[in-house]
């Protein structure tokens, strides 16, 4: 009976004002939809309902731009990523197979290198190596003799003075002349 009375009241109200609704005015248009309480927090869309007078956040603009660009790039990729990765992997595998299955002699430049090795005359190399110490010894000999001559000259140098007897000076002079003539002949 109570239910019937309630319906009658409602009908009466509708007849009196057919455009009047029972909904309360609200800023949330989804409030009365059936989301079973899982409504979104509208603070995320606060900008939508705000006036344009508020300055636009640059960070948000950049983020939006990046997201848009990424979407565009993804749509432009014609080859699936999986195919691309497979292709690279195949390339690496083929190089590895080439290295494993190719003999050393087939590598580029190896033949020229082997020719070089063949052309090396080991006997000559050894002779050259043996000849080197001989030359060095001769040079050392010359150096020693030069040093010795220098030492002798120094000893003679001490003897040359006005105190030295004239006969001795004469002999020394003659020796020098003889030495110079020997050098000229050599």
């Amino acid at each position: 009976m109570a239910k019937i009375q309630k319906i009658e009241l409602n009908l009466a109200q509708k007849i009196a004002n057919p455009f009047k609704t029972t909904r309360k005015s609200s800023t949330n248009p989804f409030k009365y939809n059936d989301f079973e309480g899982n409504t979104l927090d509208l603070s995320a869309f606060a900008d939508v309902f705000e006036g344009s007078s508020k300055p636009v956040s640059k960070l948000k603009m950049i983020t939006a731009s990046v997201v848009g660009t990424m979407t565009k790039i993804r749509s432009n990729i014609t080859e699936p990523i999986v195919n691309f990765v497979n292709r690279v992997r195949t390339g690496i595998t083929s190089a590895w197979d080439y290295a494993n299955n190719t003999s050393v002699s087939e590598f580029l430049g190896i033949d020229k290198l082997s020719e070089k090795i063949k052309n090396i005359n080991i006997g000559k190399e050894i002779t050259d190596r043996l000849a080197l110490p001989h030359i060095n010894l001769t040079e050392i000999n010359q150096t020693i003799s030069g040093k010795w001559a220098g030492l002798i000259e120094k000893i003679n140098h001490k003897r040359i003075s006005s105190e030295t007897p004239v006969a001795e000076l004469r002999t020394m002079w003659l020796d020098e002349i003889e030495l110079a003539s020997k050098k000229e002949v050599a």
Binding site: N156, T164, L169, E176
Partner: peptide, 18 residues
Amino acid sequence: NKNIAEIIDALAAHQDTS
């Protein structure tokens, strides 16, 4: 020759007339 020069100098300064 440096030695000859020194011998000549020594003889030039020498008191012996020889």
